[in-house]
Amino acid sequence: MNVFRLTGDLSHLAAIIILLLKIWKTRSCAGISGKSQILFALVFTTRYLDLLTSFISLYNTSMKVIYIGCSYATVYLIYMKFRATYDGNHDSFRVEFLVVPVGGLAVLINHDFSPLEILWTFSIYLESVAILPQLFMISKTGEAETITTHYLFCLGLYRALYLFNWIWRYYFEGFFDMIAIVAGVVQTVLYCD
């Protein structure tokens, strides 16, 4: 664990909490792309299946449980509890155009052709494009509430910090994962705008 990864995880956690609290307090999900939130829930589900098979640390396990719990809670609030405030007309990005190519790529380019590894690779590729429906929705509505921009900033910052984490780990541990790095660069670039 290094300072970049820790601040990255905390920034990620902050983004997830900011969004969840914003929807809960305002009792509205106006301006929020439910599709992006579903994609994030899918990212965490496919990436953290190893919760069932391996224990790395209390921090690792608790953060994974929190991420999964909050992402499903957010999806629940959008599509169930505050469904009336969901702006479906503007949330019209065709996610199948993301999931299918990402799924195909995960099967073609991965570290190991095992189910868990392919699902992990799928989650890495999907996470890099999961924000597109949200960005698309903001471009259609032409506006983003302040809190949504805070959410996007923290979310973008998290993966940018992970890039520094990977530089750190390569330099000090000789560890690097090309798939995560390439997807992380794509993800960070997407947030820059």
């Binding site: 990864r5 995880d9 990620h12 990436r47 190893d50 391996s54 790395i56 640390s57 690792n60 953060m63 994974k64 991420y67 570290h111 190991d112 590894e117 992990w120 992970y162 984490n165 560890f175 994962d177 995560a180």
Partner: peptide, 10 residues
């Protein structure tokens, strides 16, 4: 190779 599979990152 196995450390690449050990996913210790979130």
């Amino acid at each position: 190779e196995d450390d690449a599979n050990l996913k210790d990152e979130l």
